[in-house]
Every structure is written in C-alpha cells, then in structure tokens.
Computed example of a mutant assay.
Amino acid sequence: MRCHTTGELDMQNEMEADNPAAVVHHSASSSGAWRSLVTGIVGGFAVDAVRPGKFRGELRRFTHEGVDFLHIATGSHLARRDEAQVAAEPRSDLFLNLQLEGSCRMTQNGRTEELQAGDFMLCDAARPGEVLAEANHRSLSLRFPRELLGIPQGYLEQITAVRIQADTGLAPAVGAFLLNLHRTIPDIGLQGRRAAVRHLLGLAGAMVQTQLETTGTRPQLDPQQALLERIDGYIEKHLSDPALDASSIAAAHFISYRRLHSLYEGTGNTVAASIRARRLERCRQDLADPFLAAIPVAAIAGRWGFGSASHFSQVFRGATGQTPAEYRQLQLGTRMSA
C-alpha cells in the first residue's frame, strides 16, 4: 500500500474516482500538514499541537457511494471547527466515531465528554465543535449523509457529543460489525458492499435510538414541529397503503387539509411530493437488492403503495431518467426481467 502526502491530494482524488474499491493511505509529518490533509478530506479544521514540527498523523480512507470509512492515528493535538468553517463546508454529514486506542475529549452543542476505547459518539459536521486527542490516539469514523441514519433532526441535536459506552446497549454489536466491515470491505463486491453498509447504518441508527430511549433524551420541539414529526412517522408507517394521501393524513391527525399544507410549506416540499419521494427511495432500494432480484417490478411497486405498474414506471423514469427494469439491470449488473 503506497503512502501519500498532502501534496498529492489532487492526484489521489483522481485515483479514488478511478478505483473506488481502493483503500487510500495519507500521512502528515507536521500539524500544518495534518490540517491541510483533514481539511481536504473531512472539511475545515484548525489544528494545534504542542510540538507542531514533531506531530505525526495517518489517515486510511475507504469510500463507498458517499459513505467514508476513516481510520485515524495521531499524536496529541486539539482540532477545532468554527462557524466560518462550518459555513464553508458544502456537505452536512454525520460522523459516528469509535475510539480504538487512547482517549479523546469531544465538545459539541454545549456538551463535552471523554471517550475511552470502545466508546462511540455521534458528531454533526454542520455544527462547530472540537476534539482534544491524547497521545497514541486511534479511532475509526464513519462519515455519511444524515438522512441515512433515520433519526429526526430534533433528536440528533440532543444526541450529538453524547458518549455511548462500549459495554451498553447495541454498542458491542455495532463496534464488532464496524471493525470487521472496515477490515474486509475493500475485498467485497459492489452488491455485497451496498448491502453491508445499509445494514451497518441500520444497526447504528438502532444504537442511537436505544441511547435516546435509555437516557430519556427528548428534543425540545415546538408544537408545530412535534406535529410534523408525528405526521412523518405516520407516513412512514402507512407508506405501502395506496390510499395514503393528504386528505387521509389530515383526517388521521384531526386537522384541515389547509393546515397540513401550511405545515409542509416550511419544509420546502409538499405532502404529495414527500410521499412520492419516500416511495421511490424504497423502490430504488428494493430494485438494487440482489436478494429481491426475482421479485417482479410490479410487485415492488405495489409493495410501496403505487397503484399500477405503468404509473410507477412513469414516475420512476421521470425521477431517475431510467425505467425500473433499466435501473435494476444497471444496479445488479445482470439482465433481469421486469
């Protein structure tokens, strides 16, 4: 495996695009080089070290369809991310951090906690924060789009920078899965990687949800936001029902259609568009799942509430530019019959 310095980042990015299954190894021999390296990969940070010229840092990165596995080993340092650096970052992802060796102190959303080996912590790239790492620090971080975790934003604000202890809840299972997948994922085929990453994120979401329930953490939501989240939950639960629409949702929550429409105005979306987008996403997942390759497209459409195969095909093509059969064939790499 070849090591790359920060001066080779542009060439390295091209290599990753050409070979997405490669593990890329970066190294830095000063705190300034480490700052440049981290900024180029995970966004802007200021880095301070006691002996800047003696600092050593290594980062191994594997990327799969917008999800990064980041193995980090460094000396003692303080990394800070301020409002200006947050504003300059186009991605607002989440980081699920697993402490492997040493300890570190993380601060975000007014909370500060110390992680020991085996502990997890969820951090938000869209918020300022800081990490104080001790000598011989080693961690494994999973970076991913926030919507993949399946936790409402109000709850995320309450759980970021909260220590999830190594021996509680689902932490041991998530830790073992993450470590094993990190070790083996470069050698797994594309379909296997997709399935494994999807299951890992599902398990991580369950771990975070369990932590919320265990600690009694609840978001401070205004009544309108609380109602909107209840409606979102109702839509998820009834997504497979072809009769699900704005009128039935309004009736189920004892509000008028106009009131429902005004709730969604603040989200930049409509009720119908939200239902359609969620149904399409579930269908895309099923069409790309090799375990469901024998299920007809019409059955998948019906499973997620589309009333007819022709209507589903029209909506799907309008959203993706492909028919469902073409999308399935491309994702699975095999000619499938619709």
Rank of each mutant, 00 (worst) to 15 (best):
G7V: 07
L9H: 08
L9W: 11
D10K: 14
N13C: 10
D18S: 12
N19E: 14
P20S: 03
V23Q: 07
V24M: 11
S30G: 08
L37Q: 06
T39P: 01
G40F: 02
I41D: 05
I41V: 13
G44S: 11
D48W: 07
D48S: 13
R60M: 07
F69G: 00
G75R: 00
G75H: 02
H77R: 06
H77G: 09
R81V: 01
V86Q: 06
A87S: 13
P90D: 02
S92H: 14
F95G: 01
S103V: 12
T107S: 14
T107Q: 13
E113M: 10
A117H: 04
F120P: 05
M121Y: 01
M121F: 07
L122N: 02
A125L: 01
L140N: 00
R143E: 01
P145Y: 01
R146G: 04
L148Q: 06
Y155H: 14
V162Q: 13
V162W: 12
R163I: 01
I164S: 08
I164M: 15
Q165R: 15
D167C: 11
L170N: 10
P172A: 03
G175A: 13
A176Y: 10
L178F: 07
G192N: 06
V197M: 11
L200I: 01
A206V: 02
T210G: 09
L212W: 06
T214C: 07
P219S: 07
L221V: 03
E229W: 10
E229F: 05
E236H: 13
A243Y: 07
D245V: 04
A252G: 11
A252I: 02
S256A: 11
S256C: 09
R259Y: 12
H261G: 11
S262E: 15
E265D: 12
V271T: 14
A272C: 04
I275V: 15
R276Y: 03
E281V: 07
R282Q: 15
R284W: 08
D286P: 09
D286Y: 10
A288L: 04
P290S: 10
F291C: 13
P296D: 05
F306D: 01
S310M: 15
Q314K: 14
F316E: 08
F316V: 02
Q322I: 01
Q322F: 13
L330G: 05
L330P: 02
L332Q: 02
M336Y: 12
